[in-house]
Simulated assay, not measured.
Amino acid sequence: MESLYEIKEDGKSHILGRVRDRKIHYDFGAILKYLEWKGQSRYGQKFVLDPIDKSTVFNLCAYTVADKELCEKLGLDLRKGIFLSGPVGCGKTALIQLLRNLIPHRKTYQVIPARNIVFAFNHLGYKIIADYGNAGPICLDDIGVEPTGKFFGRDCNVIGEILISRYDRYPPRIPLTHITTNLNADEIEERYGSRVRSRMRQMFNLIAFPGDSKDKRM
């Protein structure tokens, strides 16, 4: 018995694959069309998926829909989160937001700007590190450009401490963590230290936009 897998939005039906033997078999061409439609409805008609980013987007889609066989071929571990890196303006945040729409039948992650977390820490203190360290699935968006946290005169590398806290529960207890960043591995180590960088290797799949990916905001 086979049926269509579709998402209905704004009076439109988007067929993204077929359900066979209780498993969704996705049509990745249809997924890309849906993501572009969704991006245009959210960000405006100028939103497009650039062909130069095709490999990056394909890997992210395979991971998001949890296609185990494909992810194995691509070297992606579904037990780990996503470390999404790329140049400024390449579309990391927009894409990580849009991908959640592919899986309305599953609990997904919140996308939280790293700077907002630091601002909350500056107001509420170390409770914020505990809260995010123990939170459900999250994407820490745009890490590396947030200011240093400061509470009662004491500096704190807030995002680094949250990552360590989440690692200490990793796996199988901790819900997945994802991050987006403009930084490369060496810059991550300089910003957060070798302790955080070494833990990241065990927590994340690295997916990167090409270095010559266009600035979509221009």
Score class of each variant (00 low, 15 high):
F152L: 00
K92V: 05
D131L: 05
V48R: 13
Y34M: 04
S165R: 13
R195P: 07
N101T: 14
F28N: 07
N59S: 15
V196N: 08
L49H: 00
S165K: 13
P104Y: 02
P147N: 00
G144L: 14
E161V: 11
T56K: 02
I207W: 05
V196D: 09
D168Q: 15
I7R: 09
P137T: 04
N157D: 15
R201K: 02
I112N: 10
G160Y: 13
I52W: 04
D186E: 13
G89L: 00
T93R: 05
I179Y: 06
R195L: 13
S41G: 15
C156D: 13
D186Q: 11
P175N: 07
L124Y: 12
H25A: 12
F28W: 03
Y5L: 07
F47Q: 04
G17C: 06
K33W: 11
W37I: 12
G133A: 12
S165E: 15
D186K: 13
I7Q: 11
T56F: 01
T64D: 03
S213G: 12
D142A: 03
I188A: 10
T177N: 01
D215T: 01
K38I: 08
G160P: 14
I164R: 15
K68G: 11
S55H: 06
L99V: 05
E190F: 06
K68F: 06
C90N: 03
D212Y: 08
P113C: 10
I52Y: 03
A30C: 04
K46Y: 10
Y34W: 01
D212W: 09
H14L: 00
L32N: 10
D21N: 02
V118C: 06
L4F: 03
F152D: 06
H25G: 03
P210Y: 10
D77S: 05
R100L: 02
S3K: 15
R195G: 10
G133Q: 10
I179Q: 06
G125D: 06
L35D: 03
R100V: 12
A208M: 11
T93D: 07
W37P: 11
T180A: 00
E9I: 06
N116E: 15
L74Q: 00
V48F: 13
D67H: 04
R106V: 05
L176V: 07
I174T: 15
K80F: 03
G44L: 06
K23A: 11
C90E: 08
N59P: 10
H14Y: 01
D21T: 09
D186M: 09
R18E: 14
K46L: 05
H25T: 11
R191N: 13
N134F: 11
S165A: 14
P147G: 04
D77A: 03
T56S: 02
N101W: 14
K12Q: 13
I117A: 05
F121H: 09
D67P: 06
T56Q: 04
I159S: 05
L206T: 05
A130P: 08
G149D: 10
I207M: 12
R100P: 10
A94H: 09
K54N: 00
T108N: 12
A94E: 09
